[in-house]
């Protein structure tokens, strides 16, 4: 665990220059007008959401006519693997979001590492998370490209890059559970990615998109603290090893509009032949 924490700290230290750059170059940005926690956290793929599921929310706290920027570092420490992510996003008008994420996936037991870069865009189509009966609905895309195609190709992947498309619907229901506000999110994703893209895209046999369902539910215990669950269905296309759906239970602390910390316990199932991968997820995010 010490090693895990140290490597998380190291990961965060690596992300600090990003954050400083954002802080320095965006002094024109006032604090966003949106209510605290409504920006959600940032997923391992860089889009605003929970930990593994992109939500319909736009990153940061910018409202209409306002800009927002975020930077984050995340570590996921399961039995035989470690996923480290750094990412940043820029949002405008509580409508557009542009994000980048860099993933490094350490094969702790097998040796070696995989990695991919992800560029995401998100556009709010309709609805306001807090205010309208219609849930907030966004369309998103994530372009992903692996660093080194050798291993993904060896296990049967067709391409070293791919695009995920998704539509997400999110809504906060006020005073829904024991006086607490409840956030529900449902996402439908079209993807060719094997293990989110770390093992490439498509297979030798098929180049078709698969549709998967993802969902999250969170209770805002206080204005700043959210307890929730997430489920992410995954395709299972590569013949060499089974791929399972992912799930997690998370606690997110939105300290203020500039800093949030998320911890989660994640169950990632079988990865590359290593079954029952479970472990802790830690993420820290700064926003302007």
């Amino acid at each position: 665990m010490n090693i895990a924490i140290n490597s998380f700290v190291l990961n965060y230290v690596k992300a600090l220059p990003w954050l400083c750059l954002l802080l320095g170059s965006t002094t024109a940005l006032a604090e966003g007008s949106r209510v605290v926690a409504t920006g959600g956290a940032t997923t391992i793929e860089g889009s605003a959401g929970g930990g593994i599921v992109p939500w319909a929310v736009i990153n940061g706290y910018g409202s209409s006519g306002e800009w927002s920027a975020t930077a984050m570092a995340t570590g996921v420490y399961v039995d035989d693997f470690t996923l480290k992510v750094i990412g940043a996003s820029l949002s405008f008008d509580n409508r557009f979001e542009l994000s980048v994420a860099r993933q490094t996936f350490d094969l702790d037991t097998m040796g070696g590492e995989l990695g991919q870069d992800i560029v995401g865009v998100k556009y709010k189509v309709v609805g306001e998370l807090l205010y309208t009966a219609m849930p907030q609905i966004t369309l998103g895309a994530q372009y992903k490209k692996v660093d080194d195609f050798t291993l993904p190709q060896a296990v049967g992947a067709r391409d070293d890059s791919g695009i995920d498309w998704y539509v997400a619907a999110s809504k906060i229901f006020f005073d829904a559970l024991a006086g607490r506000n409840l956030l529900l999110n449902g996402t439908v994703r079209a993807t060719k990615a094997n293990q989110t893209g770390l093992l490439g895209f498509g297979t030798q046999a098929s180049n078709d998109y698969r549709f998967v369902l993802e969902a999250s539910a969170a209770v805002l215990l206080t204005d700043n603290l959210a307890l929730g669950i997430e489920y992410r269905q995954k395709p299972n296309e590569l013949g060499f090893a089974r791929e399972d759906d992912w799930q997690d239970v998370f606690l997110a602390w939105f300290i203020n509009k500039h800093l949030s910390v998320v911890t989660a316990y994640s169950k990632l199932g079988s990865i590359a032949g290593f079954d029952d991968q479970q472990g802790w997820y830690v993420s820290i995010e700064g926003s302007l």
Partner: peptide, 15 residues
């Protein structure tokens, strides 16, 4: 999973 899908349904139907 079933719970989550039920929640998703509630969410989508509310819209």
């Amino acid at each position: 999973w079933i719970t989550m899908m039920a929640l998703t349904f509630v969410l989508l139907s509310s819209g």
